[in-house]
């Protein structure tokens, strides 16, 4: 790992892949995202090399119930951003089937019209159902696009589960997309979804009930607390029709306003820190968990501890305490 040891072949490969990604090479970047999702060790080496180059892209999360028009909205945003000469990456996450593990990824189908534009990179991903794991993979995918030099990375997730909400929170700005008559859908979604929203879009304003929905959401008055300081961010409600290309100016204005506010108040920095701390904690706990399971699978048995648990001589909680204590001592010395 250290620079002083002789360079090994995997390091050479990792170095080459990292350079290609930094050069904006789509094939290398998309492969890297696949390898990260598949848990390929090479991906970890490359990600380490890319890490210092991250943090430049503006990250915008688009979440909301299925069918709200998120992908259509993303397509409209790509168009607007390209008009301004900004380069765009899109990560579109759709849920995997809990039964087969497979997935139908339908977001890309709504984002056509950019295939001859080399500055637009759209990558669909299946959630693969792993709690925490999804976030890790999304973090890597965002970092890859960031390191490639994309000015803006749009992250589309369905706002149905905890991990999707967490992914949305990777972003600098979270846009919650609802439609008129959103009430039932809100109930079906994770309660935390409203708390994640920095901007609420009422999409499909071309259908009846949009004005009522906007007024209702405005009256509820959602706020985001900023870590330090007394100022609160009042979540704006934007009426749009992504299909008719209406409301994008207002959305852009609100995103810019939120960005400036977040920058000025230190909110942006706090969120970025939270993202990385969270990522770090996930990686550590995931690693510990895997190591632990590995020892058990190899029949390690922890000096007969497992046998005694099995024989009902020690209960799992008491046994775990001993291990936790040793872990605590270990981490304190770090």
């Amino acid at each position: 790992m250290s620079a002083t040891t002789a360079t090994t072949a995997p390091d050479v490969v990792a170095q080459r892949v990292a350079e290609q990604v930094l050069d904006g090479h789509v094939r290398s970047a998309t492969r890297l995202i696949t390898q990260s999702q598949d848990g390929d060790p090479l991906a970890r080496r490359v990600m380490s090399l890319l890490y210092p180059h991250c943090g430049r892209a503006r990250l915008i999360g688009i979440t909301g119930p299925p069918g709200a028009g998120k992908s259509t909205l993303v397509a409209g945003m790509i168009g607007e951003l390209r008009k301004r000469g900004l380069t765009v990456g899109v990560i579109a996450v759709d849920p995997s089937s809990p039964f087969s593990g497979g997935a139908v990824l339908g977001d890309r189908d709504r984002m056509t019209g950019f295939s001859s534009d080399g500055e637009v990179f759209i990558r669909s991903m299946a959630s693969r159902g792993a709690i925490g794991g999804l976030c890790a993979v999304a973090n890597d995918a965002v970092d890859v696009m960031d390191a490639m030099g994309k000015d803006v990375v749009l992250i589309e997730t369905v706002g149905v589960g905890q991990s999707e909400v967490e992914i949305a929170q990777i972003a600098n700005t979270v846009v919650l997309t609802l439609v008129p008559g959103y009430g039932d859908e809100l109930q079906a979604m994770k309660a935390g979804i409203m708390e994640a929203a920095d901007i609420i879009v009422v999409n499909k304003a071309d259908s009846p009930g949009a004005n009522g929905a906007v007024a209702e959401l405005q009256n509820m008055g959602y706020f985001q607390a900023v870590p330090q300081g007394e100022e609160m961010w009042q979540v704006p409600v934007v009426k749009m029709s992504a299909l008719r290309n209406e409301g994008f100016d207002e959305l852009e204005a609100q995103i810019l306003r939120q960005s400036e506010f977040a920058e000025k108040t230190g909110w942006k920095a706090a969120r970025q820190r939270r993202r990385r701390v969270h990522q770090f904690a996930e990686v550590v706990t995931d690693g510990v968990r895997r190591d632990f399971m590995g020892v058990m699978q190899e029949g390690g048995g922890f000096n007969g501890l497992l046998d005694r648990i099995e024989a009902l001589q020690v209960d799992p909680y008491a046994a775990a305490q001993g291990i936790s204590r040793r872990l605590r001592t270990l981490t304190k010395d770090l």
């Binding site: 039964f99 997935a103 189908d109 295939s115 990558r123």
Partner: peptide, 26 residues
């Protein structure tokens, strides 16, 4: 999907659209 595959469903107009999608989606 039911056989465990991840399927990017996509309507195309031109060959370039297929190539580009295949490339980006790996």
């Amino acid at each position: 999907r039911d056989a465990g595959m991840e399927v990017v469903y996509f309507r195309f107009g031109t060959v370039d659209e297929i190539v580009n999608a295949a490339l980006q989606e790996d």
